[in-house]
């Protein structure tokens, strides 16, 4: 039973991938795929990039949530509440004003840079806290996010960019076409690198003292992992926008079921993360077809409900 769990979950996600390839405006002419090369267009230009983006972004955001939770030793931290996403959003706005026609790569670099700065600011504030209670850390993150968000809104209002900003950040996968998603493979690569340092992350999660006692270079491991988180979130924010709660609920659910031995749980986090993202996006395409509801909007509701269930049902956990 236990040995079968992973293959079954994997099959379920593959099923979702197929469903994602088959769903949407404009039917894929499945019957003509063998004979007619033009029949591949819908698949290759829109469906395939979109599906790949869903899988990679869902995976990367979930894993970066996991990393942040381990490193800050707090269950309730996620990229959006650790300064990265709000800072990346500000970066996207700034480059949008300064150089509207900038190539995607430049936008991405700017967003990643802002995202690193945001995360650094968050950690700097955490270091100044003498009382590192579980209550305080997510709260600080949310407040920091609100302050950064206020700056972003202020700038956007002044330059009359609020409308475009909301559109950019809505977690909308329908805008993903060939030529715009390929950088997400880089995000996938960064996520794979996390797997390599999984054991070190587990030890860092036991705290500085234990890590040093076991002879681990605490600072460099921490730094490396945080750079990955910041870069991943910078890129994902540029390509698809924000995916609220994903980085929070996926690692928490997996932790409840499988514990926190990171090397063992990362595959599960990846599967569940991409599964949920795929599900939300497919649902968004179906509910109001032919209109689309962004996956981010559905995730906000779905994620909040799941998180509340976890939070209120498990009184000892956290």
């Amino acid at each position: 039973m236990k040995a079968l769990a992973f293959p079954v979950a994997l099959l379920a996600v593959i099923g979702l991938v197929v469903a994602s390839l088959a769903t949407g405006a404009g039917a894929v002419p499945w019957g003509r795929l063998w004979s007619d090369p033009a029949a591949w267009d819908v698949l290759l230009i829109s469906r395939w990039p979109r599906t790949v983006a869903l899988v990679l972004a869902g995976m990367a955001v979930s894993v970066s949530g996991l990393i942040l939770q381990v490193l800050t030793r707090n269950r309730f931290v996620e990229p959006a509440t650790a300064g990265t996403v709000p800072a990346a959003s500000l970066g996207i706005l700034v480059i949008g004003i300064a150089w509207p026609a900038a190539p995607v790569v430049v936008k991405m670099l700017v967003a990643a840079g802002f995202s690193i700065a945001g995360l650094a600011l968050f950690l700097l504030i955490l270091r100044r806290l003498s009382l590192r209670s579980a209550l305080l850390i997510p709260l600080v993150g949310i407040m920091l996010g609100a302050v950064l968000g206020a700056i972003t809104t202020f700038v956007a209002v002044r330059y009359e960019m609020l409308q475009s900003l909301i559109a950019w950040l809505s977690g909308d996968f329908s805008v993903i076409l060939r030529g715009r998603y390929e950088v997400l493979w880089l995000v996938g690569l960064l996520t794979a690198m996390v797997y390599l340092i999984a054991n070190r992350l587990s030890i860092v999660g036991l705290g500085r003292d234990v890590a040093i006692t076991l002879g681990l270079n605490y600072r460099s491991t921490m730094l490396f992992a945080l750079m990955i988180v910041a870069m991943v979130n910078g890129v994902v924010t540029v390509v698809v926008g924000t995916l609220p709660f994903l980085g929070l609920i996926v690692p928490n659910l997996i932790s409840l079921m499988k514990g926190d031995h990171i090397r063992r749980t990362i595959p599960w986090v990846c599967l569940l993360g991409s599964g949920i993202t795929l599900l939300c996006d497919i649902a968004g395409r179906v509910i109001r077809a032919p209109y689309e509801i962004p996956a981010g909007a559905l995730l906000g509701v779905f994620g909040a409900v799941v998180f509340l269930l976890v939070l209120l049902r498990e009184p000892r956990h956290g």
Binding site: N199, S202, G205, V210, L214, G215, S255, G259, D260, H261
Partner: peptide, 18 residues
Amino acid sequence: HFVSRLTVRDLVSFGRYP
């Protein structure tokens, strides 16, 4: 005070890390 949810065996195994 570990926040990580590890099994006893996992925790003890980390002692072998050095």
